[in-house]
């Protein structure tokens, strides 16, 4: 599927298995870095990704489950919870404008 333009990103969902650990930590970081950008950042279990998500961030190991749970939504997988280049790239794109690839 196609990517999404940064201006169309209003809600980022960070998904993990239980929504109680790593996703919470990453969400707090992303929220801080996107303060003032008008983007809502939430964390949820991978099986209950809300329908209005514009971009889903999740650990690469959960990517298949996230795709099944939120078909058609741009998915950005990452490997490490702190300082992953994929996450940094997403934040940069939102701040500076551009396309986030699916």
């Amino acid at each position: 599927m196609a990517g999404i333009e940064s201006k169309d990103i209003h809600k980022i969902v960070i998904a993990c298995d239980a929504g109680m650990g790593s996703s919470v930590m990453l969400a707090s970081q992303v929220r801080k870095q996107l303060k003032g950008e008008g983007v809502e950042v939430v964390h949820t279990p991978v099986n209950s990704i809300p329908g209005d998500a514009d971009v889903v961030l999740c650990h690469a190991g959960l990517a298949d489950r996230a795709r099944a749970s939120a078909p058609g939504v741009v998915l950005v997988p990452f490997q490490v919870f702190i300082g992953d280049p994929a996450v940094t790239r997403l934040i940069d794109t939102i701040k500076k404008g551009g396309t986030v690839d699916a």
């Binding site: 298995d17 239980a18 929504g19 109680m20 650990g21 790593s22 930590m25 279990p45 099986n47 490490v80 919870f81 702190i82 300082g83």
Partner: peptide, 12 residues
């Protein structure tokens, strides 16, 4: 999660 830290937790 880095810096010699792990955050073990349960499942949904």
């Amino acid at each position: 999660v880095g810096e010699e830290v792990a955050i073990p937790h349960g499942t949904l």
